[in-house]
Design a protein around this nucleic acid. Structure first.
Lengths: 239, 239
DNA sequence: CGAAAGCGACCTGTATACAACCTGCGTACG
DNA sequence: CGTACGCAGGTTGTATACAGGTCGCTTTCG
């Protein structure tokens, strides 16, 4: 059916589905079902699932299944802290040559996002931001750092997307559009330091907004945040 | 034969063998041979090899084999630059509680290293430094950063070990002993900032020494460094 | 004698059969 | 009625058979 038969394509598709919450936390990803969908055997599917487990997006439990991980705020707080620090590192190390087509693509994304102002469509907004992030990440010259940044982004992206329905729609759209606009301007000026500052500021702002939704994200140090459709009902208390 | 049948153990063993140059660059790691050695089938071995490929320590080529990667100086230069920058990030983020046993272990390692001053044994020195690094890495409180630091270290460790025979033995032993000594002192004082500074300084010094051996490591921007026993003879020119 | 084609041994990639394991439901028993 | 046991269905883990590919040696032909 679906014609993405090579492993890398399958990996990219599944990761995007998880990142965009097409597979919400707790979803069981059966190897047999995925194998049937992509027209391959379990073997390459297993390979992909194990890599997703390494990425922290899936938990494989023998006899149970491969489950999309819950959004662990305690852990993601660490990832966010790290990502903010890495922004400076990205700016300090040598940047890559920026492809003009990437800049044009980002420019187009800004218009796409602006058009979403009147239409509440969290998934499309999230997808646009994912593409924006992908283009910006390509500007990281240090190869290992580029891979690390990509991995860390996909770990945290779900948190914002999950919070989207509870946040003020127009506010979020405007924030994304502004970030894209500021970034495109800094990219055109060739000022990677400015790009870094823009990303850092917007990331911190985003953390603040999501944190307000979660109820003091900063202060969280104890129990992990369980998704609204949690896997383990042990947190739910007696019914 | 070898009783490390679980995947994690096999992974750790193979990674250490590669890191310590027990498997020099270009070594062919046959799935069948490894499966026989560890008493398992090809399946778990494949899983380990693919993870090692993701770590940049192995290249899997269909029809050829799983080959230990060559020491690519151009790439490792990026890794080194990144690791130096990450030292500061490690110091900025919250540290983990340091286990007193780790400090004691490090203290013991210093004596082990000192004893090596009169006996030229690169592998034992490298193993000691690997253990030292492992203990220090455990002090990184930020979990994703801890994993990243571990991964990056194992990518670069081979470069120094490979250069060891060409460097001044006593000089290298003294450098390691001094780094361990300085680190243990900073750890006992609970000053993570100082630990970071020590590590950064020693890392930069090490880069300089190895760079001298490679002939201006800093200036390298072109062809990758091919190991003395290179895999692809395409670099050798016409015979 | 040289070069090229062919073949064989070995390798990884994929598919599949089987083993080990977990979960939930039905049933039987206290 | 409640609890505990057992079994059935589904899941991942492992082993293995087969397909596809690469390399080097041998052989054969120019």
């Amino acid at each position: 059916m679906s014609e993405g038969r090579d492993i890398q394509t399958i990996y990219a598709k599944l990761r995007e589905r998880i990142s965009l919450l097409d597979y919400p936390p707790g979803t069981a990803l059966s190897e047999n079902r995925l194998a049937a969908e992509f027209g391959v055997s379990r073997t390459p599917i297993r390979q992909v699932l194990h890599r997703l487990e390494f990425d922290g997006l899936v938990t494989i439990r023998r006899g149970v299944g491969s489950l999309v991980t819950s959004i662990d705020v305690r852990y993601l707080k660490q990832v966010y802290d790290l990502r903010v620090k890495l922004i400076d590192v990205i700016a300090d190390l040598d940047p890559a040559a920026i492809d003009q087509r990437d800049i044009a693509r980002i420019d187009a994304l800004r218009d796409e996002v602006r058009a979403l102002r009147g239409r509440r469509d969290p998934r499309t907004l999230a997808l646009a931001y994912l593409e924006f992030n992908r283009a910006v990440t390509r500007a990281i010259g240090n190869e290992p750092l580029r891979e690390i940044a990509d991995r860390l982004y996909h770990q945290t992206s779900r948190l914002w997307i999950d919070a989207l329905p509870a946040l003020t729609w127009v506010h979020e759209v405007d924030a994304v559009e502004q970030e894209i606009d500021d970034t495109v301007r800094a990219l055109r000026a060739g000022d990677m330091r400015a790009v870094a500052e823009v990303r850092k500021r917007h990331m911190i702002d985003c953390i603040a907004r999501v944190g307000a939704y979660l109820g003091r994200f900063d202060a969280i140090a104890g129990a992990p945040y369980t998704h609204r459709t949690p896997l383990s009902p042990s947190e739910g208390g007696p019914s």
